[in-house]
């Protein structure tokens, strides 16, 4: 393994010192995602000036404010559309989006579906905390059945979005899901996502003790983390059980979140295809002697 950078070094190099400490609550997972992203950028030796950050609204969407790179903050749910515009204007940029489950799959659901389907060249770091944290705990479309939220006081009766499976089905080039408290796997996934040419989604399960935990008897940070541990299973393990397990085991793992790399494909992103199309048309016109 390559030598890891000190937190001190990362802080100096990439963070806006005056903005820290973050506004995130005690025990919020979002700050950890910043750390992992910076480590991925450092390990890949990407020049921070070639990075453009984009985000919408939410606690998670505040992240670009802490990182010393160019960033744009837009309206709720529109982070991916804005990011598409950035990439269209300057395809040389490495576009990274920080977004929440509410931002990306609630209000921004349709933008998400089409950005993934069109395989737009960008890296999306989605912090899934099952809740609208910033506004005090309204039900998010990702909340597990039975979750308590301000808008679901008797328990959620709606089927939840499975974001990573959705993105996989839509043909996104890279899709991975990890709980925030396994450091090495998410860092590796963010690195793989940044290097992938197409749409890369890294869904990080990032606990919100304030708006989700407290209402769901998981207010103690350790309890919330243990819940994540008890309710996640590696994709490979899941498949093993679905093939060889007993009926009881199968029922049990079906209720769990699969974690790991869902998809990792080498394929051209939208803007690469677009470039190819432009070249093709120029060649065609040249052959016809047109336009001269």
């Amino acid at each position: 393994m390559t030598e890891m950078a000190d937190a001190n070094v990362l802080r100096e190099k990439y963070l806006r010192d005056g903005m820290l400490p973050t506004i995130f609550c005690n025990g919020c997972g979002h700050g950890v995602a910043v750390d992992y992203t910076l480590r991925a950028i450092e390990e890949l030796e990407i020049d921070i000036d070639t990075i453009a950050l984009a985000s919408g609204i939410g606690c998670s969407s505040r992240i670009p404010g802490y990182i010393n790179a160019d960033g744009l903050h837009t309206t709720h749910g529109r982070a991916l559309s804005l990011a598409t515009g950035i990439k269209a204007a300057n395809p040389e940029l490495n576009v990274i989006v920080f977004t929440g489950d509410g931002d990306c799959t609630g209000i921004g659901g349709n933008h998400f579906i089409h950005a993934a389907r069109r395989n737009i060249d960008m890296t999306v770091i989605l912090l899934n905390n099952f809740i609208y944290g910033m506004t005090g705990g309204q039900l998010a479309p990702t909340a597990p059945l039975g979750s308590i939220a301000t808008t679901a006081p008797y328990g959620n009766i709606e089927q939840a979005f499975n974001i990573s499976e959705l993105a996989t089905a839509l043909g996104a080039a890279y899709v991975a899901r990890w709980p925030i408290f396994y450091p090495y796997q998410p860092i590796k996934s963010i690195k793989d996502g940044l290097q992938n040419k197409g749409f890369a989604l890294i869904e990080l399960m990032s606990p919100c003790p304030t708006a989700y935990g407290r209402r769901n008897k998981l207010g103690k940070i350790d309890a919330l983390w243990t819940w994540y541990e008890d309710n996640t299973i590696l994709i490979e393990e899941y498949e093993k059980i679905m093939n060889y397990g007993t009926d009881d085991e199968k029922e049990k793992v079906k209720q769990m979140f699969q974690i790991g790399v869902f998809q990792n494909e080498v394929k051209a992103g939208f803007f690469e295809e677009y470039e190819k199309m432009v070249e093709r048309l120029i060649e065609r016109d040249d052959a016809k002697g047109g336009g001269k």
Partner: peptide
Amino acid sequence: CRLCELLCPDFAITVI
């Protein structure tokens, strides 16, 4: 092992 540094949500810890 640096786990505390990696998991700290507030960049408060450095392991030397």
